[in-house]
Write a protein that binds this DNA or RNA. Structure first.
Lengths: 341, 341
DNA sequence: TTATTTTATGACAGCGCTACCATAAAACGC
DNA sequence: GCGTTTTATGGTAGCGCTGTCATAAAATAA
């Protein structure tokens, strides 16, 4: 016995068949108008569009996706939303997708590759057109799915490694390295590092290692370091610097893993009457607006988060097919001299 | 002539039929195991799960969605991602969805109801289980779809109005009102307002009006105000205060639409040697961490962004059916006395 | 003119899954 | 022991759309 049409649906939403009937054309022709595919006579198009407007027709993307074995969804997997960095990336992605049919589906991994894998698999159930992830480090299972899937893949932020398809970002190792060179050149010798405890933030680790390398080459090293438990925040930066200076008051410069924490460092200095730059240099990473709006602009490195997201999404929608060649796009970085180091 | 199975697909992904065949059960039984529905014998479940693992089966959500006329997608429409406020809301939403099957699809409206309408319609094509929007003000078309759709609806941030289904947030009018009362009580008399030009930020407007009302009741009024062109930012706050004080140096307190801009105001004072609180009170809105990490914590109002997102998403997934009664949840706010006003 | 290409449209099956109904076997009530 | 409920499973149709192939009409070429 056939199930009553739309038996479990209410109210009865108009379908493409309703549109076709009203416009006096076949379903497939109506479909072509909706998708703007193939040759359609102007008069036909008009009739169909009128019918669509009249019925308030909304296409069913699940049906379309099933029939065509593909969707216009773009899976975006970000490590975190707490820091403005990833919302900035997301803004860039969104900006590239604004006037396209693509829609971002987002997941948050908490910097955990296993969570990333779990969310990735659940996203793949939607047959996304593309997947965006942060970093080049994934679980073997995730990597396997990324490599064999029929979708484009972009790995963001970092470019030190071998991407699946497209990588867009900068060399964090080099950023750390240049931070060290810059500060040594400015005369700083007694280096401290005030970080946080999320060890899986691969980018922060890469910058840290780059910093150590350049110090080593200059015959120097980190005299003291402290990692505050928990995630990165302004408060954590403030506390971290306080503890660091308590243990080792002789430092003349402290590098932070990002601007938020560096701002906290500056606040600690303001509170404790430590003359920033003269007595203690403070250096961050990211080049956030707020740091540059301070009376004493933060010395930091500008990362181009928005551009990274924008570029990645634009590249992804260029072609449905994954090309033979892998693409690596270096968005670079700039040292912002600022007034704090 | 029948189309070759999976003709336009490569490689051939395993389907539920493959799983069922390998496990020696019917498709529907395999489907029940995947979805954890109905009574299944333990031995059967095990066989099916083994088959799933062996084949690396990933369910096709488009097919599932089509067959069941519903999805596990949650459409999230936010005005902006530039300010940390909406990422905070998104974190809350995400947090509520973490161990559920729901997945957020996000769109950014730029505070424009027409863009909101356009994105909403494109999201409805996925038959979402729920829709989350900011504010209670939408286009008539959007409102109509929200009211007649077979999905739950949550309108976030503001509760001053008539929601479609669920509203979660606080009264921004009241927050503005309390801001005025608080500052008058602390002895401030010569009020200024340093805002930005995005007139469609309904919440900021509501707070502004609440502030004006309480000042009026106290026999006072805004002596001067300035709105910096463009969106809210720390830099805009700094510039806005500078212009405001240039036009009216006699102010003893300035209210900002949010903490970002208020921080900019403080930076202007630091730069110009104006003693904050003694010479000029500064008041913000949101209670961002960074403002509280300053040596002189920002006087502001704590809005509970994370909680708003979390509560809304939790409420939405409680039931698929929209209840008769509308729900309004007031997450409230707190005045943070701080040290700047 | 006639042959060929281009333009415009349609018939139809099937994408992979789940709602609906049916059924058989096991457990339970009295 | 016999009817009733519960548990476990399956057959089948169809969700709404689009890929494939076919076809007719119009435009172009020879």
């Amino acid at each position: 016995m056939p199930r009553k049409r739309n038996a479990h649906r209410s109210p009865d939403l108009p379908t493409l068949a309703d549109v076709a009937r009203l416009a006096g054309v076949s379903e497939i022709t109506a479909s072509r108008v909706v998708r703007d595919r193939g040759p359609i006579a102007d008069s036909t198009r008009t009739r169909v569009l009128t019918a669509i407007a009249e019925l308030g027709y909304i296409p069913n993307r699940a049906a379309g996706s099933l029939a065509s074995a593909g969707s216009t969804l773009m899976s975006v997997l970000l490590p975190s939303l707490s820091n403005i960095v990833f919302p900035d990336v997301l803004r860039g992605i969104h900006s590239a997708l604004t006037h396209t049919a693509y829609q971002p589906v987002i997941g948050v991994t908490d910097y955990d590759p296993l969570i990333e894998e779990r969310i990735l698999l659940s996203f793949l159930a939607w047959q996304p057109a593309a997947v965006i992830l942060a970093g080049l480090h994934h679980t073997p299972t995730a990597r396997r799915h990324l490599e064999h899937g029929r979708f484009r893949v972009a790995e963001l932020m970092d470019i030190d490694g071998d991407p699946v398809d497209i990588a867009v970002g900068m060399s964090h190792r080099q950023a750390g390295y240049e931070t060290g060179r810059h500060l040594v050149q400015r005369g700083y010798r007694r280096f401290g590092y005030a970080g946080h405890s999320v060890a899986t933030d691969d980018r922060a680790s890469a910058r840290y290692e780059g910093l150590c390398t350049s110090l080593r080459e200059a015959g120097l090293s980190l005299i003291a370091e402290h990692r505050q438990p928990g995630p990165s925040s302004t408060k954590a930066g403030r506390e971290s610097l306080e503890i660091l200076l308590g243990a080792e008051p002789s430092l003349d410069v402290v590098v932070f893993p990002n601007d938020d924490m560096a701002m906290g460092g500056i606040f600690h200095c303001m509170h404790s009457g430590i003359a920033v730059r003269e007595k203690l240099g403070i250096f961050g990473f990211n080049g956030l607006d707020i740091g540059q709006a301070m009376p004493m602009p933060l010395s930091t490195i500008l990362s181009r988060r928005f551009l990274i997201g924008l570029t990645a999404a634009e590249k992804l929608i260029e072609s449905r097919e994954r090309p033979q060649e892998k693409t690596i796009i270096n968005t670079g970085f700039d040292i912002i001299e600022g007034a704090t180091a």
